[in-house]
Simulated scan of single mutants.
Amino acid sequence: MQTLVTLCALLPLLLSVHADVVERFEDEPECVKYFYKEKVPEWGASTPGAARLCQRFVNRYHFATLYDTNHRIAVYSAYQFQPSNGGGRESRWFVEPQLVSKSWQAEMTYSDSLGKNYPGVYLGEKQALNEDFIRSGFDRGHLNPNGHHAVPSRNATFTLTNVVPQNPKLNQNSWRIHESDLTNLFKAKCSKAFVLVGAVPSAENWIVKNNVKRVNIPDYLWNAYCCVDNNDKPIQSGAATARNTDDDKVEKLSLVELGEFLQQFSDEPVGELFYNDCRA
């Protein structure tokens, strides 16, 4: 009887639309638009257990995430910059039902609500949960920053697939300042700014809960941008990296230098992060 009750409770989710669960970003036009000239980088494509998420909130798309379900952190988030219009700071965190089952809805939803509605289903097999971060000593560090969006895209950044365990000092100081500097740059110079923000997982550094390795604590954060004019021609590009420690330092790089940095962590060529390396 309990099994029947559970199945009946799951039926609405099982019947939900799941068009956002894609094998390739290129197969979803509403998702690939977050990459400059719809060129998806090769970086991270061969990550074991990678899931491609077209992040949807209030029935529309907002950004794209290549998510590492084994480490339970994103490989990267891809988005277009938007000037903030204020508001949109969520007090609760979203999870992705599509990572619980591919047949479930792609619309992000509050983890506490989904958990209460489906108490017999574990949500955290392939994604981080809010309780993983509680008393962990790490911030829920946004990759795609909420301050680079207007509402409702700003709300959508509060999904746990868009955060990594980030050193609080780094998150609240140099990385925050770096994001603010990018805001000023994008507003001043760019008609559009395409951005990638990612994390390099550590070998053996995890948030552990009940003796289980739950969420990998990345060694580095990185980002890269391609700024274009009204004719979609590149104006400026740049990148940065930061060790996820109390060092609290952000190192500014070129796209070429970032590629060389990322190459240290891959046996396969990094390739272009943006179409034609964001060159005019």
Score class of each variant (00 low, 15 high):
L99E: 00
S101D: 13
S101P: 05
S103Q: 11
Q105A: 11
Q105R: 15
Q105H: 09
A106R: 07
M108G: 00
M108P: 02
T109Y: 11
Y110D: 11
S111E: 15
S111M: 12
S113D: 15
S113P: 00
L114P: 07
G115A: 10
G115E: 14
K116F: 14
K116I: 13
K116D: 13
N117G: 13
Y118E: 05
P119D: 10
P119E: 10
G120Y: 06
V121Y: 12
V121I: 15
Y122A: 10
Y122G: 00
L123Q: 10
L123C: 00
L123V: 08
E125Q: 14
E125D: 11
K126C: 03
Q127R: 07
Q127W: 06
A128E: 02
A128F: 01
L129G: 04
N130R: 10
E131Q: 09
E131H: 08
E131F: 02
E131T: 00
E131R: 12
E131G: 00
F133T: 05
I134N: 09
I134R: 10
I134Q: 11
R135L: 07
S136F: 06
F138M: 10
F138Y: 15
F138R: 04
D139S: 12
R140V: 06
R140P: 01
R140W: 07
G141L: 10
G141Y: 11
H142W: 02
N144L: 03
N144K: 06
P145K: 04
P145Y: 03
N146I: 01
G147P: 04
G147S: 13
H148L: 03
H148W: 05
V151A: 02
P152V: 08
P152L: 08
S153T: 13
R154C: 01
A156R: 04
T157S: 00
T157N: 05
T161P: 02
T161V: 13
V163F: 03
V164C: 03
P165W: 06
P165K: 10
Q166L: 03
N167H: 15
P168A: 11
P168C: 11
P168R: 13
K169L: 15
K169R: 14
K169S: 11
K169P: 00
